[in-house]
């Protein structure tokens, strides 16, 4: 099965068809998608700014991360589910869209950046958590995360203007 036939069979799914046929389905899914993205970005912004060295409502960076990350993850799951449904409704066109592909790459890069931070810098967070300025690695992770998630939002909005087929 080639990629093209796979995309076509996703498009042909009864669920995809239902999203296309129901006038309210697409805007409702899009609204939930935007809500989820604002929650992801809004909560990650607070954590990233703390990593850059900007004060937050928690003195401890580690405490701030453990307090807000469940919200980021919860919202991210909602964004993935709603995003997948939006994709399914028009799979062939989304897969061919450059901004959509770049958006997936930016999300992947943001994920790798976060994984590296958790696996390395966060392990030694106790050394600076409440007492010192964050080290370069933490500040770099924070800035990179902000840049990548901003890019994700811009690319996401751009898809709406560049997508080939609108049913």
């Amino acid at each position: 099965m080639t990629l093209q036939t796979t995309l076509q069979s996703i498009y042909d799914l009864p669920l995809s068809n239902a999203i296309r046929e129901n006038a309210n389905a697409f805007p409702v899914l899009e609204s939930l998608h935007v809500l989820a993205i604002t929650l992801v970005f809004g909560t990650i912004l607070i954590v990233d700014l703390r990593l850059v060295g900007y004060a937050s409502h928690r003195r401890s960076a580690n405490r701030l991360i453990t307090e807000l990350l469940p919200f980021t993850w919860g919202a991210f799951v909602v964004a993935i589910i709603t995003g997948s449904l939006l994709f399914a409704s028009n799979a062939v066109a989304y897969a061919a869209n450059t901004e959509f592909r770049l958006k997936l790459l930016a999300i992947l890069a943001a994920g790798i950046n976060m994984a590296i931070f958790h696996a390395t810098t966060q392990r030694t967070i106790a050394q600076w958590d409440e007492t010192a300025a964050p080290p370069f690695a933490a500040r770099a992770a924070g800035v990179l995360s902000l840049v990548l998630w901003t890019l994700v939002i811009f690319l996401g909005r751009w898809i709406g203007f560049t997508l080939d087929v609108l049913f």
Binding site: V34, I37, T38, L39, F41, L45, F154, R157, W158
Partner: peptide
Amino acid sequence: TTWIIPTVQSLHILAIAVVVGSALV
């Protein structure tokens, strides 16, 4: 100017994210 509306809309969403994050906490 094709890039103006998507750019302004993207900035609008970023600002909404700031409100949502701040209001949430």
